[in-house]
Design a protein around this nucleic acid. Sequence first.
DNA 1: TACAAACAGGATAAATTTATCCGAAATAAA
DNA 2: TTTATTTCGGATAAATTTATCCTGTTTGTA
Lengths: 144, 144
Amino acid sequence: MFSKACEYGIKATIFIAIKSFEGKRVSPKEISEEINSPQAFTAKILQALVRHHVITSIKGAYGGFEIDKNKIETIKLSQIVNAIDGDSIYNGCGLGMETCDEHHPCPVHDKFKSVRDELKQMLENTSLEELALNIKSGASFLKT
Amino acid sequence: MFSKACEYGIKATIFIAIKSFEGKRVSPKEISEEINSPQAFTAKILQALVRHHVITSIKGAYGGFEIDKNKIETIKLSQIVNAIDGDSIYNGCGLGMETCDEHHPCPVHDKFKSVRDELKQMLENTSLEELALNIKSGASFLKT
DNA sequence: TACAAACAGGATAAATTTATCCGAAATAAA
DNA sequence: TTTATTTCGGATAAATTTATCCTGTTTGTA
């Protein structure tokens, strides 16, 4: 469904959000340990998230990654996915055809429509704050 | 969403079904031309579909791939996807975690549930016959 | 039986994704 | 200003997916 990079990116962003609530910055090392991901690869993904303005990086001593507290509730899951995997997951054709629309649909176009729409709605309606609070309360987990 | 192999596999199976309705067998060459896919790679995927008993192959002169006419209406999209990509698309964790269930959910477990369930229902309720008839009637297409 | 047609499957290569390493640049504190 | 810390980003490697090639085996027909 999502790429490995995207899976790491989602978990990393949630962890950064939790720490940012507490006014703390985190390093790639801390993040990869917390979400159980390869450190250097995770660092690359963080760079992409910075470029797409999902998270912020502060270079130098006492630096790290953080997210503006006031921004956490406005960030949606769709923004994280878009920053890493793009929007093909809910905008592209289910069978990879160049052009696939109402006028020239692929064999599963109609069947897929509702699934993709629901996925899109879910991603756009789920906020980072919500995901972070569920981790904090112990309702969900970042690693096995 | 699906792998390239699975995309080709779905299209190939639909085309074989259409030809089988007419009592004809088809070759990998004919299939790859019709669905616009690499021939040798498509042949590999056909082998997998044969092993999973989705399609049948007849070796030797006048051979080719076919599907039992009476079986076409009983084959579901889920069987094709399962044969090539397995069931991880709707049974695995959305964030790739080893264990992810009600007791130990990943951050998006609940949010994803309805999407994955709808996808699963769609795949299990869509028959090969239905997809093939839509191509025959010109309601959908196998290539751009 | 000999031959040609057609799938099976191993070996290999190309492309993409995932992952690692290391030096450069930036920054806070001493 | 020097030093320690930390992100940035290029180069490279490993793993997986996608794709190609070639030989073997099967099978129908002459």
